[in-house]
Amino acid sequence: MRLKLNLKTLGLALVAIVACAASYLIAADHIDSPAVTGTGSDITDVYAFQSPANANNIVFVVNVQGLLAPTATAAASFDEEVMIEINIDNSATKDNTEDLVIQAAFDNGKVKVYGPEAPIQKGVMSTLLKSSPIEASISAYGANPIIGESNGIKVFAGPRDDPFFFDLNQFKAIIGGTATSFNNPGTDAFAGTNVLALVIEVPKSMLGSGSINIWATSNREM
């Protein structure tokens, strides 16, 4: 509209200016927008445990994009607009507010892990930390895991077997009222499928003492 008004004031033309767009011969409709669901921010599981390899370390695992069939795994990739954050409350009172965060951003085939460090911003908005990150290439499907390591911290990002096991379907049937008990043996709904995993191993000394409360979030860049 504004374009047309300007043209009129300039006295250039009586009619608006054409904007070239596909004619019906070549199909004027653009390809439909890609699916809005399954964008890669759904966290499937969170794990936190003492490292089996080093009792001085804690391992954090955050998985996204569950139920990947083996043949779909090679093409799966982390959503580069999404930053995964591990929030850590190490206060004595356990107020469930993050005192430290570990942030993992994905960029051009690499994972960049920041922290653990005090967050710049607490709550549902997050600001990417400014310290220099530990980087690792995102491991490819079928290749050996690529591990980034610095300051005693190890990072991995890439496809793995989904470690979760659960007869989810029977549980749904029970909740839905079409079954009254679990089967024995049950059926693991996640068997044979993969996830995209983020694994970070951190010295306990960087996290606090006694115990900590943790939770993971996925966050989309504004």
Binding site: M1, I17, A19, P34, D107
Partner: peptide, 30 residues
């Protein structure tokens, strides 16, 4: 922008969109 006849703006939007998903094969091809 395309609908409004602002093709150059539309191109800038789509180029920026492409940059956001360079690491994703399916989306970047789209």
């Amino acid at each position: 922008k395309d609908h409004e006849g602002m093709l150059d703006s539309a191109i800038v939007c789509m180029e920026q969109a492409y940059h956001r998903v360079r690491g994703n094969k399916a989306l970047s091809q789209w």
